[in-house]
Structure formats: C-alpha cells, structure tokens
C-alpha cells in the first residue's frame, strides 16, 4: 500500500499503459481482420456483430469444455462463418456491402443476446496471462505487465500480414482484387472468391478479438461487453491507411484512450467517467476529421473500396 501512495499520480500513466496493452487487443485483431477484408475491396461493417457473437460463443465453449483455448478457436470459427455470410450476400449483384454490414451487425448482436442469455451467470475458465512483471514489487506496475498471449500473437501477426500482403502470391492476388476487380478477372481469378476468403479470414481474426473480450478482459459475458469496439476498429483501419503495422500502433493508441477513464477512476477522479469512456469514439472522429479530405482519395486506399469512392 505504501508503494501505491508513493507512486502518486504515476499510477495514471502506468494504468493507461497497462490498459493500452489489455484494451487494445480486440481493436488489434478486428482492425487486422478488417484491413485484409478492405484490401480485397470490400468493407465489412458487421465486425461489431462478429465481435459480440464470437465473444459469446467463445465464453460458452470455454464454459462447457473447460478449455479457454477451445473457446478462442470456436470464437474464431464463428467469426469466419459470419464473414462468409457477409461475403456471400455481398457477392450477389446489386447488393450494397455497407448496408449488409449494418444488417449483420444488428443480427450478430441480437443472436448473441438470444443465445447468450444462459451464459450471463456462470463463470467460464478464462485465458492465462504471462507475467512479465515478476521483478517488481509495485502492484500497479506488476498488474500492467501481465500480458495475455493473444496480444503477443497480434504483435507477431501484424508484421506477418505486412509481409504476406507485400510479398506472397496470395497477397498480390488479394490486393489486385482490391485495386481493380477487372484486372483480377483478366488474370483468371474470381473476385468474389478472393473476397470471400478475405472476409472469412477477417471474420476469423475479429472472432479471436471477441474471445479476448469474454475470456480475458473484462473476462465475462454480458450484453454490454462490446459497445462499439468493432466499429471503432473499422474506422481505425482508415486511419492506419490499410497498413497492418500501422493498425497495431493505432490499436495501442485507442486502447490507451479507452483505458483513460478507468485509470483516472483508480486515483479517485470520477468526474466525466462516461465522457472518458467515449474517448476512443471522440478520438476516432477527430482523427478522421484531420486525416480525411474531400479533394483527393486517401493514400493507400484500395481503389475498389465503396467507402472511399
């Protein structure tokens, strides 16, 4: 306790940093997934629904099987299935991908609430964390340095995706579909099939992000689990200029913003708790205002993307 008081106001930045690592994980996975989907020329706004639905499935599977890792896998597969639904419907001619995303967002949330009713009370096994803070006696710092494996997976995944998009045949085909559907067709590829795979992979990753919510932090299932993290992550991809590595840094920034409210609360500053809770949304909006422009298309934007056309 002496340590806590001697830290004084340093508690806040430490908590923000620890929170940034914790809170950013779902942002990271959703934005990496959405980044892939958008690079193939389609936008999936339904990832908010995917996040909630997969969080519920992950929690349920972990509760029934006792293995949180099985829960993560089930959550990821749920995400892939929802991604496939989005891709198949958007693959029909004349269907608007933005609107389908909104519909899937509402559907995913509704379905998760419907099926997740019995999961609100029971406690499922949650994911373990790796303790990087064994050397310190300061409880706050120790807490901040408990890092979940999924976060580390995300840290590895971001540069891998950069490499895969840049240097593999698969990445090139995906980017071709995103830049010019005609070019991809001319090369003999089915644009719909490429986008189906990209959206399913995107949903798979977003599903992992969802399992983090219910199986690590906050580590339970309730109907208020995600309020807009999914959609913030979609906006974050625009801010990150469709670059997986920038998605990583942006996720950390957003995680830090989201952790600000709880961090201030820990030093008894309760004023504006809800406003600080809205910090990621305000930050997203502010960043979009600063970085977008009506005159030119954004640098790095896939040319086939409906949201920037």
């Amino acid at each position: 306790m002496a340590d806590a008081s001697s830290l004084g106001f340093w508690v806040v930045p430490i908590a923000v940093l620890g929170g940034a690592v914790r809170v950013s994980t779902p942002f990271l996975f959703v934005s990496l997934g959405e980044c892939l989907t958008e690079r193939s020329g389609r936008i999936n706004l339904g990832l908010e629904g995917t996040l909630v639905m997969s969080a519920m499935v992950g929690y349920g599977v972990s509760y029934v099987s006792g293995s949180p890792w099985l829960g993560v896998l089930a959550a990821a597969l749920t995400g892939a299935v929802l991604g496939a639904v989005h891709a198949v419907i958007c693959g029909l001619p004349k269907v608007n991908d933005i609107a389908v995303g909104i519909a899937l967002m509402l559907f995913g949330i509704g379905l998760a609430f419907f099926l997740g009713k019995p999961l609100i009370a029971p406690k499922a096994n949650i994911l373990p964390a790796i303790d990087f803070g064994w050397w310190t006696t300061i409880p706050q710092l120790h807490d901040a340095l408990k890092i979940n494996v999924l976060f580390l997976l995300g840290v590895v995944l971001a540069p891998v995706l950069v490499w895969a998009l840049r240097s593999t045949r698969w990445g090139l085909v995906l980017r071709t579909a995103g830049e010019s559907a005609d070019a991809a067709r001319a090369m003999g590829y089915s644009v719909n099939r490429i986008r189906l795979r990209a959206t399913m992979t995107g949903g798979f990753l977003a599903g992992i992000g969802g399992s983090f919510l219910s199986l690590y932090y906050p580590g339970n299932w309730n109907e208020g689990l995600s309020s807009g993290q999914g959609i913030t992550a979609v906006a974050l991809v625009i801010f990150a200029r469709w670059n997986p590595m920038l998605c990583f840094w942006a996720s950390l920034l957003f995680g830090g913003a989201a952790a600000l409210g709880p961090a201030l609360q820990s030093v008894q500053i309760t004023w504006g708790y809800h406003l600080f809770g809205a910090a990621p949304y305000i930050l997203t909006l502010a960043i979009m205002i600063v970085t977008c422009s009506p005159k030119r298309t954004l640098v790095g934007a896939p040319a086939e993307l409906s949201i920037t056309k």
Partner: peptide, 14 residues
C-alpha cells in the same frame, strides 16, 4: 472533410 457518414454517425451514437 470527406469523412464517411456511416462511420461518423455510428460513432456519434456512442
């Protein structure tokens, strides 16, 4: 500013 209205209005909801 060319900010996509679907995303901005959803953020404004929150």
């Amino acid at each position: 500013r060319g900010v996509n209205e679907t995303i901005s209005t959803l953020l404004l909801n929150y």
